[in-house]
Design a protein around this nucleic acid. Structure first.
Lengths: 163, 163
DNA sequence: TATTGTTATACTCTATAACTATA
DNA sequence: TATAGTTATAGAGTATAACAATA
């Protein structure tokens, strides 16, 4: 298939997507760093913001990392004052990881900045363009998830390795 | 501003973008791993694919990492047989990092898979949607770069730190 | 003097395996 | 026996600082 100069080929579009992804992750990493946070610790905080107090196991599943990794992240966030390890009322093996006031303030600020950045990047767009883009990105996400599952098996099935 | 259920708010759009970014980077990391590569080493290889043989300094600038870091990445890629350190004809301090046949084969495959994935994700789209999305992503990249420069100074200016 | 790349050191994120305390 | 979290160990990516060889 041919694409004229003014037309966006699938590869052009893909390249813009990757370029923007890269810019975003760098930009966000800098924002986090300004608050004394790293991307991984911020991600953990964000899950707590959305889920409320949960165990480290739950966090490990949410972030898709090993439980051991969560121990380190929580250690660091306890150290920096963003979270607390509270004893789990029904299970003496587990902790309930809870946002401190400082942690809650940090996630509240993130939520605000997230919305502000979204408005900066996409607020001035014609509603049509925004709708089309949202449709395209959602379709791509679905398609990519399908491809992923086809090639590597469903996420929960990850171990079988059956061809 | 209010957004009806069927309308995409700027935040909705932003969230889909971030979700897709995350899926993509995980998916690509798995592809790379299958070829015995990591994301950082793949990125380096990709620069060589596009630029031809260059010095480690040039690579450091292209990847936006420290020269020290490039030393490690090149060490690993020499070890795995993807690149060679050739003596620089005009500067005995420097090396020209060069793709081996194996490295060139790997980047050729990446280019093919890149185009295939783009076609999978965006090939079946109405041309209008693709054009609108490309426009939106390009605008967002430009806007983000502007914001970044406003807040942190031009990239090349990065050290001054003058308010 | 300035630049290219390396040695030395350190921090973050990640993983697996073995272990302790509980369930 | 299985689960929650930790200790131990390791590899990758990143950084700065001090140093070598060369420009």
């Amino acid at each position: 298939m041919k694409y004229a100069q003014h037309m966006a080929s699938p590869t052009d579009l893909f390249n813009w997507l990757l370029a923007l992804s890269d810019l975003l992750s760098k930009d966000m990493a800098i924002q986090f760093e300004r608050q004394g946070l790293t991307p991984a610790r911020t991600h953990l905080l964000w899950e707590l913001h959305q889920r409320g107090p949960v165990t480290q196991q739950t966090i490990a599943e949410a972030l898709d990392v090993s439980p051991r990794n969560v121990t380190s992240l929580v250690d660091a966030l306890v150290q920096s004052g963003h979270v607390r390890r509270e004893s789990h009322p029904g299970d003496r093996r587990a902790f309930l990881i809870t946002l401190t006031d400082q942690g809650a303030a940090a996630t509240a600020r993130m939520a605000r900045e997230h919305a502000e950045l979204a408005a900066e990047l996409f607020g001035a767009l014609p509603a049509d363009d925004r709708a089309a883009t949202e449709r395209v990105l959602r379709r791509a996400s679905e398609r990519l998830t399908e491809l992923f599952d086809t090639h590597y098996g469903r996420k929960d099935d990850h171990d079988h390795d059956d061809q």
